[in-house]
């Protein structure tokens, strides 16, 4: 396979893309951790991007403030959407997020202040490679710890069996809404980083086709462990760049890979316990575990995993 154009600037761009896409996918992961089905995370990232862009462009806010503001808006939208859909059947709640995305498109489209169809432009370039990867690292660490936190366990109890979770004293509606909103905030943060690199945010980036993409990235990578989201967001962004085919060929391959992988590994590429319990996978798992134990000591060790 030809590897064309190995210039540094080009790869810098690709890697920054992959970095913030991985961040938005992490947001999708957190929202899914309590069992929500969302195609709204593109719209959440968009909400963050518009908010952050306006803050830096029109109010001269520094980037950290813009990131905070964007994440806050994502959180608020997330908690509202979360509460509205928490009692609905999984598919219906998914539709609710679809409808929300389309409403956001229309709003962005029709508000002149947001730039209408041309999108929000004139935003200063503030995002760098290092910033994206610093944020990614911080978020991976935080979410990794979240997974073994009080809230994280409750979230996954809700995902596996809401009825049993409620019987065990978990306020399912609250846990699901809160985690949905936290994921939305993370996605919005990714959006803020994105707009300060691409310098434009258009309404069609908020639609549900884009949202579906993030859902695919998370489920493909593996939605039961934080590395899955990072892996999905990263590889599915970088892979097409490495495969220098025509756009159509690239997508054909992409689609085929999705279908094959999800059938072979229904929980996604990265799973908690290797599915094929063959020697190689077990070995890789143990190596990973040992590495992680070295890299980050303390709190996030899953009980019962070793000892």
């Amino acid at each position: 396979m030809p590897l064309a154009d190995i210039s540094l600037a080009y790869w810098n761009t690709v890697l920054i893309f992959a970095g913030y896409i991985a961040i938005i996918t992490l947001g999708q992961y957190v929202s899914m951790s309590s069992g929500s089905l969302s195609v709204a995370h593109a719209a959440m990232a968009g909400a963050g991007a518009y908010t952050g862009g306006l803050l830096t462009r029109d109010f001269g806010a520094p980037l950290p403030i813009a990131m905070l503001g964007g994440a806050l808006v994502g959180f608020v939208f997330g908690i509202v959407l979360g509460f509205l859909s928490v009692r609905l059947h999984l598919l219906v709640a998914g539709l609710m997020t679809l409808a929300y995305s389309e409403v956001m498109v229309v709003v962005a489209f029709s508000l002149d202040y947001l730039g209408g169809a041309n999108g929000l432009t004139g935003v200063p370039a503030l995002t760098s490679f290092w910033l994206v990867y610093l944020m990614l690292a911080v978020l991976v660490l935080a979410i990794w710890r979240y997974d073994t936190s009080r809230l994280g366990y409750a979230a996954r109890a809700c995902r596996d069996d809401p009825r049993a979770a409620a019987a065990m004293g978990i306020n399912v509606a609250w846990v699901k809404s809160l985690t949905f909103a936290l994921g939305a905030a993370v996605a919005a943060l990714g959006g803020v980083l994105r707009i300060h690199y691409t310098l434009v945010e258009t309404p069609d980036g908020l639609g549900f086709y884009q949202g579906m993409n993030f859902l695919i990235l998370a489920v493909f990578g593996g939605s039961y462990v934080v590395w899955g989201a990072v892996f999905g967001g990263f590889t599915l962004t970088v892979l097409p760049e490495i495969l220098r085919f025509s756009a159509a060929d690239r997508y054909i391959l992409y689609g085929a890979v999705l279908t094959v992988i999800i059938i072979v590994r229904p929980q996604g590429v990265i799973t908690r316990v290797p599915l094929g319990a063959d020697g190689g996978a077990r070995w890789a798992w143990r190596l990973r575990k040992r590495l992680m134990a070295r890299l980050v000591a303390g709190g996030a060790k899953r009980p019962g995993e070793e000892r």
């Binding site: 695919i216 489920v219 756009a247 992409y254 689609g255 999705l258 279908t259 999800i262 059938i263």
Partner: peptide
């Protein structure tokens, strides 16, 4: 799972 498996095929067919 079926969502992604059939979605992948849909991408293949379109392209």
């Amino acid at each position: 799972t079926s969502f992604i498996a059939t979605g992948g095929l849909s991408i293949v067919m379109q392209n």
